[in-house]
Amino acid sequence: MKRLTQLASNWFDLPPEVVGTLPRVEWIGQQLQIENFIGVHQFNPDLLTLKTATGYLTVEGNSLVMEAIYPDRILLTGKISAVHMKNNE
């Protein structure tokens, strides 16, 4: 299934976030929206680590609040200072 969607994306030249399972991060001011995550690895007031298809996505900041968690996306607010990625090998 995964391979099939990848194939479709290559064939039809679609943007990968539309079809894929790749994480997509949208950062607007103090709000961060993360789509296509797999699970929550760690959650603290100053740290949120999410498991994604490509690796661990870490968000650092102060007084982080997850406004909403839907099955496919997270809305995060707070004083965000850094977003970094630890890729899978």
């Binding site: 609040v65 839907y70 099955p71």
Partner: peptide, 21 residues
């Protein structure tokens, strides 16, 4: 094990709101 709990809840596709420390 709050982080694990949250992960479990997310895996079960339950919608959470205002997760706040």
């Amino acid at each position: 094990n709050i982080s694990n709990l949250l992960d479990q809840i997310v895996q079960a596709k339950i919608v959470l709101k205002n997760v706040q420390w």
